[in-house]
Structures are given as structure tokens and as C-alpha cells.
Amino acid sequence: MSLNQAQRYEIRALNAAKIPPKNIALQLKVHKSTIYRELNRGGGRQHYDPVKSQERADLLAATSHLHYDYDEDDWKIVDGKIKEDYSPEQVNGRAKLDGMGVPSVATIYRHVNKDEDLKKHLRHGKKPYRKRGEKKDKRGQIVGRVPIEERPAIVDEKSRVGDIEIDLINSADHDANLLTINDRMTNYSLIRYLPTKNAKDLKRTLVRALKDFEKTFEVKILTITSDNGKEFACHAEIAKAMKADYYFANPYHSWERGANENMNGLIRQYLPKKESFKGISPRKVRWIQDKLNNRPRKRLDFMTPLEYIYTQVITTNLSRVSDENPPNNKARDCLLLHVSMVLL
């Protein structure tokens, strides 16, 4: 639903009065997702600007009927990038960065799907591209799911410990699974073996792992984000047990859990897709987990996730010790060793 200028000023007033978005939606008689999107697009809850938001809406309305006619040279550029294994989104984003006119992501997908040679260069060539919010999506049948659009904007900033992403990796013969868990800010990883995809078994394993994480680092799990697999059907029970908010990414939008997808790719370095890991030993799972947590990351200025979470959380906890008993290096080293060994 489109909002008008008067409604946008009303949103600013109600937001400034700290009225929850859901209540703002009720007052304006619009869906709550409309308000969440409007606030996110207009600068977030703390910096929402109705003037800029209205200007953006006016510009979109004025140009929505305009369609650029791409010529053969434009498509040659697109085809060249696809053959370099760029995704349609990467082609689109890179072209915009370089100041070039470029088809939309959906248009590029339609173009690629007409050419079998180009389709081979997509990471998931056999999987159809689905537009966000497509109604006939068979994976969107989880009761009570809360969409990622309603997740607080601060989660995207990766500025706090406790925003978690989770997923399940399947064994080659679909006879075993690995539950993968990562903290968005620190890239700290947890891996747990699951013999089945049973939702209740996953719930128990996940809650146990997250509670261990909270206890070890003295932090609070704030949000959990997963895909729409039926194995996450017990999401409400997980959220209640952890006293956290649970959100679902959109189907076929794996980039909305980018950190977790990257983690899964790193795990595949040790457990290739064609390899069965049924009956894998806890020691091997722990070894892979330690490999990931002691691997330098460019995003962390080449610190390891273990080092980074230590500097972000453990140092804060140690600083609570009174000045009369400052933490020494030996205490710090013992604590760091404890961190690396506790999370089984």
C-alpha cells in the first residue's frame, strides 16, 4: 500500500513518541509490514525523515513507467559477466557501482534462463529464481513465521553480539545433517551433528548449544534468523526458551543469511557435497568448528572469530573486575583457552 505525505508526517510523530510500529500500523489502518518497510527505507527508527521518504516515493512514481531499451552491446556485457560466474545480482550491483545502465536482477534472470550455456554459470542453475513474497512458494508453510522485514535494522549493522543465523547442511545421501550456527558480528561458529531433520530434535540441540554460548561468553541471544525449512517448525518454542526474537529469511534469498551461507561454504572445504558424513565423530565436528573459529577473516581485519569475540566480549567482562584486582595476562590466557574448549 502506498503512503501519502500526511501519513508519513504522522508516522514521524508517532515514532518520535516511541509508539511501536505495530500500533502505528493499526492507527493508520495499514499492514504492519508497510510501517516497518517505511521506517527502514526512511532512515530507521532513530533517523526517520518523512520529507526524504516522500521525495523518494515521488521519484519512483514518476519513473516507474519508464523502461530502458537495452541493446546488443549491453547484453554482451551482461553475458560476459555471467560467464565469469557473476550472479545476476552481482552483475546488476557492479554495473551500478560503475555508473552503467543495467537491467534489473529479475530481467537478467529471465535472460539467462533462455540460454542453457549461460545457465551453467549460475551457482544454482537448476533452481528457479523466485521473486520475494511469491504466494505459491511451497516452503512458506511454517505456522506463525515472522518475516525478516520485521527484524530490527540494527541486526544488519553487525554491531552487537547475540544476533544469530542458523541453517542445516545435508549429507550426500541425506542420511545425516549438521546444524550450523554463527554470530553475525563476530563470525563465531558452532556446529552440531543431527542424525535426522526432526524439528524437536533440532530444537533441543539448538537450545542447548545457544545456552552454552550464552553461559561461556556471558552474553544474551537477541535474535535468531533461519531459512524456511520444515526442520525449523519449532521456532516459537526455540524463541521462548532463549527469550529471543525469531525471524525467517525469504525463500530463495540465501544472501539474507550471508554470513551463515559463507560459513557453510567453509565447512564444505572439509566435508565436500559428494561426501557422506553419517556417523561423523564429535571430535571431527569439533575439529572443523575450531578450524573455522581460528581462521583469520578479512572482515575482522584478519583477526580470527575467537580472537574477535574475545576482544569484544571477554575483555568487557574482565574490565568489570575492580581496579584493585586488574586481570593479568595469565588470567586472560586461561580464559581464552577456556572459551576455545567449553563449546563442544
Rank of each mutant, 00 (worst) to 15 (best):
K119H: 03
R132A: 10
Q141L: 10
E116L: 11
N113L: 09
R123I: 13
P128K: 13
H121P: 00
V143C: 12
K135M: 06
G125W: 09
P147H: 12
D137L: 06
R151N: 09
K127V: 15
I154W: 12
G133Q: 02
G133R: 04
K127W: 14
A153D: 11
K127A: 12
P152M: 09
V146C: 08
V143G: 02
G144I: 07
V143A: 05
K114D: 04
D115H: 03
P152C: 08
H111V: 06
H111I: 03
H111K: 04
H124N: 13
K114W: 03
K131C: 09
K120N: 08
K126C: 12
K135S: 09
R123P: 05
P128E: 15
A153M: 10
H111A: 07
H111P: 01
I142W: 07
A153E: 13
V112P: 01
R139I: 14
K126R: 15
G125S: 14
Y129N: 07
I148N: 03
R151S: 10
D156S: 03
G144A: 03
D156I: 04
R151G: 06
D117L: 05
Y129I: 11
D137N: 10
V143W: 08
K136R: 02
E134C: 10
I154P: 00
G125P: 02
E150G: 00
K120A: 10
I142D: 04
Q141G: 06
K138T: 06
P147A: 15
K126F: 15
K138V: 12
K114I: 04
E116D: 14
L122V: 06
K136C: 02
H121I: 01
K138N: 07
K126G: 11
D117H: 05
E150I: 03
E134T: 13
K136V: 07
I142P: 01
D137F: 15
R132W: 06
R130G: 04
K138L: 08
R132L: 08
K119L: 06
G144R: 03
E149A: 10
I142A: 04
D115A: 01
R132V: 08
D117I: 05
D115Q: 02
P147F: 14
R139L: 14
L122E: 05
K114Q: 13
V146T: 12
N113W: 15
V143P: 00
N113C: 05
K135T: 09
D156M: 07
R139K: 07
K136S: 06
E150S: 03
K136W: 06
A153T: 08
R130M: 13
Y129M: 11
G133E: 10
K131H: 11
K131P: 00
H121G: 01
K136Y: 07
H124K: 09
V155Q: 01
H121F: 10
R151A: 13
V143K: 08
K135N: 05
